[in-house]
Write a protein that binds this DNA or RNA. Structure first.
Length: 101
DNA sequence: TTCTTGACGCGCA
DNA sequence: ATGCGCGCCAAGA
C-alpha cells in the first residue's frame, strides 16, 4: 500500500523536534517531494484546527514566519515558538541554530 | 480547459 | 540587503 503525499508530509512535520524548526522546502524534500514547498504550505492551510501537529515549527527558508507581520496568526506562531525557547532576531529565527537536520 | 493564486524557494542584478 | 523573475504544482474561478 502506498502512503499519499498528504500523510507523508504531515508525518514529517510531526517529527520536527520541539525547540527546532524546518522550512517548507525542507519538509517537502524530506518527505520525498523536492520543489514542492508550496504543497506543504497548502496542506498546513487546509489542516483541521483540532490537529495536534506542530505546524508552528514550519517557517520559510529565510527563517521568517509566512504570515503578515502583526496578524493574529503571526502572533500566534511567534508565541508558540518563543514558548519552545526559539529566539527571534528582527522578526526571524536563526536557521543555523534552530534548523532541524 | 485555461488562467490565476499562493503558509515557497532560488538565482541574479 | 532588496527587489524581480521564474519554476513548481494543486486548487479554485
Amino acid at each position: 500500500m502506498e502512503i499519499d503525499k498528504e500523510t507523508l508530509i504531515y508525518t514529517v512535520i510531526g517529527s520536527i523536534p520541539k525547540g527546532q524548526v524546518a522550512s517548507y522546502g525542507q519538509v517537502a524534500a524530506i518527505a520525498g517531494y523536492p520543489q514542492n514547498a508550496r504543497l506543504v504550505g497548502r496542506l498546513l492551510k487546509l489542516m483541521p484546527n483540532d490537529s495536534t501537529i506542530p505546524w508552528h515549527r514550519v517557517v520559510n527558508s529565510q527563517g521568517k514566519i509566512s504570515f503578515p507581520i502583526g496578524s493574529n496568526k503571526y502572533q500566534e506562531q511567534r508565541q508558540k515558538l518563543l514558548l519552545e525557547g526559539i529566539a527571534f532576531k528582527n522578526e526571524r529565527v536563526n536557521m543555523r541554530v534552530y534548523q532541524w537536520q
